[in-house]
Amino acid sequence: MAEQSAGKSAARPQAAREVPRGAERTAEHAAERPAEREGPATGPRPVSPPGVPTVVVDGLHVVYRIYGAGTGHGNATAALRRILLRQGAPSVHLVHAVKGVTFTAYRGEAIGIIGSNGSGKSTLLKAIAGLLPPDRGRVYTDGQPSLLGVNAALMNDLTGATNVILGGLAMGMSQEEVHERYQGIVDFSGINEKDDFVSLPMRTYSSGMAARLRFSIAAAKNHDVLMIDEALATGDRAFQRRSEERIRELRKEAGTVFLVSHNNTSIRDTCDRVLWLEKGELLMDGPTDEVIKAYEAHPGGS
């Protein structure tokens, strides 16, 4: 497993026998889950016993530092003015976005992350992906985490077709793999259903079309750990169904999927486990139905 520790964005190998704090507790909790749950045929797959850990989050804290308004921090002119006037450094406001979160994710799981706005869901994904350094605690990953929308960044001045090729290459596909999967990516996105939009520059796309193409590019590759932030809220119901089915396929191919969404229906249809965050703290970690029912009964739950 690779590790992202406080103040270091680069990953380093984890000791072979090191087990982070909380991993045993989380594994025991997962082992207590029932082998399967009753539900609709289109719902989540039966929960399997925990297998190979792919992500271990151990006492994670993420803190944003916001410099006071009007201080001009980062502006050369304002900095020179402070030096000449012998002013002190600008005031710093700390935002504790993630507070001591601990959990273990296993290969083959699809995990939903829910919570009200500003609860730290997207921050948690960025920390797992190695895009935000922990202030305290550690993140261990087995394989390369891929955050949807980062690995498949699109360029507005290029056509959709060119973005499909560049996005696939950026995710590590070979040219042969990109060409083999090109038509499937375009068909999956549905951007050509009404016209030949794939030949037009991305700046002519609606935000929904761009999001669908971004998801289609990212989902074309098998990921060790795939993290999706609100992707299923974009597009019509037909596209959402295709997206949910693709996530199930990724799980069968031995990956781990994290899904952040305010759409509880998508979470129920896609995930068999849910993490509930509020004000940066992990309030609940358990089976989907159980956690979502508790969340919906909570003031502010939706």
Rank of each mutant, 00 (worst) to 15 (best):
Gly22Tyr: 11
Val274Pro: 03
Val225Gln: 03
Gly7Pro: 04
Leu154Asp: 12
Gly168Ser: 08
Glu32Gln: 12
Ala297Asp: 15
Thr159Ala: 02
Gly115Lys: 06
Gly108Val: 11
Thr256Gln: 07
Ala161Thr: 04
Gly255Pro: 07
Tyr295Pro: 14
Leu277Gln: 13
Ile111Leu: 12
Pro299Asn: 04
Gly43Thr: 09
Glu230Pro: 13
Thr288Val: 03
Thr162Met: 05
Ala294Asn: 10
Gly39Glu: 04
Ser243Pro: 02
Leu124Thr: 09
Thr204Leu: 03
Leu213Gly: 02
Val19Pro: 15
Gln4Trp: 10
Ala218Cys: 10
Leu124Asp: 03
Leu94Ser: 06
Pro44Asp: 08
Ala76Thr: 14
Thr288Asp: 01
Leu147Ile: 15
Ser266Asp: 04
Leu154Ile: 15
Met171Gly: 10
Gly59Pro: 08
Ala233Phe: 07
Phe197Pro: 00
Gly149Pro: 10
Ile111Val: 13
Arg241Leu: 11
Asp58Met: 02
Val98Asp: 12
Ala41Thr: 06
Glu38Asn: 11
Arg214Val: 00
Thr159Asp: 09
Gly184His: 06
Ala297Thr: 00
Val274Ala: 04
Phe258Glu: 13
Ala294Arg: 08
Ala211Met: 13
Phe197Met: 06
Asn151Leu: 01
Ala161Phe: 02
Arg138Ile: 11
Leu125Cys: 06
Leu147Arg: 11
Lys293Gly: 00
Ala129Glu: 09
Pro44Ile: 01
Ala211Glu: 07
Ala231Phe: 01
Gly160Gln: 06
His96Ile: 11
Ala41Asn: 03
Asp135Leu: 05
His96Cys: 02
Gly112Ile: 15
Glu177Ser: 12
Glu180Arg: 13
Thr141Cys: 14
Tyr67Pro: 00
Gly300Lys: 06
Ala110Trp: 00
Gln175Leu: 07
Glu177Pro: 13
Ala6Gly: 01
Ala6Cys: 10
Pro50Cys: 00
Glu176Lys: 10
Ile217Pro: 06
Ile228Val: 15
Gly149Val: 10
Leu85Glu: 12
Val62Phe: 13
Arg212Cys: 00
Val164Tyr: 08
Leu84His: 03
Ser206Ala: 08
Gly39Gln: 06
Pro49Tyr: 00
Val57Thr: 05
Gly130His: 11
Asp289Glu: 12
Thr162Asp: 14
Arg136Thr: 13
Val139Ser: 05
Ala220Pro: 13
Leu275Ile: 11
Phe215Gln: 07
Gly168Val: 07
Gly255Ala: 10
His262Tyr: 05
His96Gly: 02
Gly160Asn: 00
Asp224Tyr: 09
Asn156Ala: 12
Gly115Phe: 08
Ser91Ile: 01
Gln175Met: 08
Arg246Thr: 13
Gln144Cys: 10
